[in-house]
Amino acid sequence: MTLKMKSDQQRRILVVDDDRKLCGLIRDYLTPLGYEVAMKHTGAAGLEAALAGNFDAVLLDVMMPEMDGFEMLKELRKSSNVPVLMLTAMGEEADRIVGLEIGADDYLPKTFSTRELLARLRAVMRRSVLTVSEAATQETEYEVNGLQLNEGTHQVHLDGEQLTLTALEFAILASLMRSRGRVKSREQLLDDVSDRKFDVFDRSIDVHMSALRKKLGDNAAAPRFIRTIRGIGYQFIVSEGGSET
Rank of each mutant, 00 (worst) to 15 (best):
L73K: 00
E75V: 06
L163W: 04
V207K: 08
E141F: 14
L76T: 00
R227L: 08
V37N: 01
G241F: 09
A89N: 12
E116A: 08
T245V: 10
G91R: 14
A174S: 15
I226Y: 03
L190D: 09
G34A: 09
L60M: 15
L100Y: 10
A171M: 04
E141G: 15
E143S: 14
C23D: 00
D17G: 03
M90H: 13
V37Q: 03
K4C: 12
P83D: 04
R126T: 13
A211E: 04
E116Y: 05
F55D: 01
M125I: 13
L118K: 11
T111G: 15
L149R: 10
I226S: 03
D206Y: 12
E139H: 12
S179Q: 09
K6D: 04
L87H: 07
M72P: 00
I26W: 03
I229Q: 12
E244Q: 08
M5R: 09
D95G: 13
L158W: 07
G160P: 05
A220V: 13
T245N: 09
R126I: 09
K4P: 02
S133A: 15
E116D: 14
R186P: 11
A89C: 11
P65T: 07
L212V: 01
L47W: 10
S80I: 00
P83V: 00
L121Q: 06
K215A: 01
A50S: 08
M1I: 10
I229N: 11
G46L: 04
I13H: 01
L168I: 10
T245Q: 12
I226F: 06
S113N: 13
G99Y: 03
M177Q: 00
A38R: 00
G34W: 07
P83H: 02
Y142T: 09
G217A: 02
L173N: 00
G152R: 07
L73A: 00
K74E: 15
E244W: 08
F112C: 06
D19A: 13
L149H: 02
S128H: 15
L3M: 14
G103Q: 04
R213H: 05
Y234W: 02
L60E: 03
D192F: 05
R96S: 14
T245H: 07
A49Q: 08
N54G: 06
E169R: 04
Q235N: 10
R20P: 00
S128A: 15
L73I: 02
G241D: 08
L149W: 11
R120N: 10
A45P: 06
R126P: 04
E92P: 01
K214G: 06
D206Q: 12
D105E: 13
G53E: 01
V200E: 13
Y29A: 01
E66G: 07
T164V: 11
K215M: 02
T137L: 14
D106F: 07
T153I: 11
